[in-house]
C-alpha cells in the first residue's frame, strides 16, 4: 500500500505540489491526468524517492520515504518506473538492459537473469529483439523493453510517467495492451496518462490534477459521466474531443 499524506513540494519559491492526499491499495490501478505542469510527474518521482518533498509524508508498505533510516535503494526495488522517453541504456543490448539490475542488485546468476529476461520479452511480445541495441528498435518496442526491464526486478508496484506520449499513434496500442494485461493480472499501478480509453478500461480511480493540487477524483465511470469541477470538464472536453 502506498499512502500519500498531505505532501507539498517546492522548487525554490515555486510550489509544485500542494497538500496531496492519496491511498493506493494493493492491486489497484490509479490513473493521474491533468494539463502539463500540473505536478503529475513530480508526484511520481516523489513516490520512489527520486525527488524530495518538504511537507507531509509518503509511506510505502509502512516505511516513510522522508525517514533518513529508510534505505531508498532497497525501497526502489519494489517500485518499477517507466518513463516517457523510455530511457533505455543506449550502450547495452536489450537483454543486458533487462539483466543489469537483477545481476547487480538481486545478485542473480547470469543464467537465471537471462532466462527471466527472455520470459519477460516473450510476455511483451519481442523475444527476437534480445540481442539488438535500443537504437534499432521502434519507440513502441523500446517502451515494451523498458517495461520488461522494470518487471525484471519483480516489483510490487509499477509507475508509468506518460508512457505513450512520445510514441507514434500506431505504436500506442502495443504498449497499452501490455499495461492493460499487467493491470488485469493484479499489479498495483500508478499511471500518468492522457489515454482515457485505458483509464476507462482498467482504472479503479482517476485523479485530476491542476497547478499542483488534486482537483477531482472518482472511479472511472463517475469521473467521465459527471465531472464536478469546471476545470475538469474543460480538460475532458479538450482531450476527448
Amino acid at each position: 500500500m502506498i499512502e500519500i499524506n498531505g505532501v507539498s513540494k517546492w522548487f525554490g519559491d515555486f510550489q509544485v505540489l500542494t497538500d496531496i492526499n492519496e491511498i493506493i491499495h494493493k492491486g489497484q490501478t490509479v490513473v493521474i491526468c491533468g494539463p502539463s505542469g500540473s505536478g503529475k510527474s513530480t508526484l511520481l518521482r516523489c513516490v520512489n524517492g527520486l525527488e524530495p518533498y518538504q511537507k507531509g509524508e509518503i509511506l510505502v508498505d509502512g516505511s516513510s520515504l522522508s525517514d533518513p533510516k529508510t534505505n531508498l535503494y532497497q525501497l526502489r526495488r519494489k517500485i518499477g518506473m517507466v518513463f516517457q522517453r523510455f530511457e533505455l541504456y543506449p550502450h547495452m543490448t536489450v537483454l543486458r538492459n533487462i539483466c543489469l539490475a537483477p545481476l547487480k542488485v538481486l545478485k542473480k546468476s547470469r543464467r537465471e537473469a537471462e532466462q527471466k529476461a527472455m520470459e519477460l520479452l516473450v510476455r511483451v511480445g519481442i523475444p527476437e529483439k534480445a540481442q539488438e541495441y535500443p537504437a534499432n528498435l521502434s519507440g513502441g518496442q523500446q517502451q515494451r523493453v523498458a517495461i520488461a526491464r522494470s518487471l525484471a526486478m519483480e516489483p510490487d508496484y509499477m509507475m508509468f510517467d506518460e508512457p505513450t506520449s512520445a510514441l507514434d499513434p500506431e505504436m500506442i496500442n502495443e504498449v497499452l495492451e501490455v499495461m492493460i494485461d499487467l493491470a488485469k493480472e493484479g499489479m498495483t499501478m500508478l499511471v500518468v496518462t492522457h489515454e482515457m480509453g485505458f483509464a476507462r478500461e482498467v482504472a479503479d480511480e482517476i485523479i485530476f490534477m491542476d497547478e499542483g493540487r488534486i482537483i477531482e477524483r472518482g472511479t472511472g465511470q463517475e469521473f467521465f459521466a459527471n465531472p464536478k469541477s469546471e476545470r475538469t470538464k474543460r480538460f475532458l472536453s479538450q482531450i476527448l474531443a
Partner: peptide, 13 residues
C-alpha cells in the same frame, strides 16, 4: 539525461 539516471535508480541500482 537526468531521467536516464533516474531509470537506473528506479531499478534499485
Amino acid at each position: 539525461s537526468r531521467d536516464l539516471i533516474n531509470a537506473a535508480y528506479s531499478t534499485g541500482l
